[in-house]
Simulated scan of single mutants.
Amino acid sequence: MLWLLLLQVFASCLWLGHSEVVTSFASCSQFFHAGTPPNNVLEPQNPAWICQRYSNAYHFATLYNKDKRIPAYSAYIYQPGPGARSKSWFVEPQLINPTYPKNMDTEYSLQKKYKITPQQIGQSQAINQDYNNLKDLNRGHLSPSCHRNGNNSKWSTFTLTNIVPQNSTLNQGTWNDYETTTMALQTQGCNITYVIVGAVPGNTYISSRRVNVPSHIWSAACCQTNTGMKTWAVIAENNRDQVQNLTLAELETSLTQLYGKGKVSLFDSACPR
């Protein structure tokens, strides 16, 4: 019996810090209202569905574009609170090799464990050196750490599968104002707020055309109150410091035009347009 107990403890320790590459969001559907992700119009040609799990808990979900090496969107529940920012940046081992562990890990750790190169790590995802020596751009979180509560949840957002090259003035200016001030005001009276933040692929790249620079960053929220549901949305061009406030219907219409692949639906029908 003792060896069975030890085996269970060992298995539970291995499970800490998982970030799963999956075939659908079924195992982390709690981050979408009524368990319904956006429709497949936003799905890239070479997608990865990632249930972002860290310290034995799921924290958010990401649809990742392996060709352009940026997330299409990240979905999460708005739960701001205290905690520290991570000092490390993580990558997704299972985007390197599906047999690798599910743990988020640093590039340095993976290189030591598996005797692999940064080039091997970066075949289907961005790596740290892609974001070196940027001009007028920096690492923009889709699921931001300021919307998370506690160290583990905040640290989970520091994975490069949740990052896009974002205009630095926008990221530190009106987009930051939206994330900190507007969201706090809009969510007053909300019992639970579901958020999806996405990036529209653009025509420019960084790091020798390895990582796409989005043309637009957008965010939509669906909030459940004691009396019903409410929604709001924003979009910003990724070359200027201006955030445009929209209804959910207006954002879906704008994304439908920007993607040109069919009608976009971000939330299920219970979220008012």
Rank of each mutant, 00 (worst) to 15 (best):
L246R: 06
T181S: 10
G228K: 13
P118I: 00
Y100N: 08
H33G: 03
T106R: 04
S27G: 12
D177F: 11
C146D: 06
E250D: 15
I217E: 00
N138C: 11
T253D: 14
W3L: 15
T247L: 04
N152A: 11
P272A: 15
N191V: 05
N239W: 06
Y100S: 06
G35L: 13
L170M: 06
G262C: 14
G83K: 05
I206T: 05
Q125F: 00
V195Y: 03
V41W: 02
L110A: 01
L2P: 02
S143W: 01
D136C: 09
P201F: 05
A126H: 00
S109I: 02
T62E: 07
I217H: 01
T117M: 08
L5H: 14
R273S: 15
I217R: 01
A61N: 08
T182I: 12
A220F: 11
K261F: 15
P82S: 09
P82H: 05
Q242D: 12
Q242I: 09
S145G: 03
G83V: 08
K230I: 15
P37I: 10
K66T: 14
Y76W: 12
V200N: 09
R273D: 15
L6W: 15
W89L: 00
N239L: 05
P101Q: 08
N239I: 06
Q123L: 10
Y54A: 00
G17F: 01
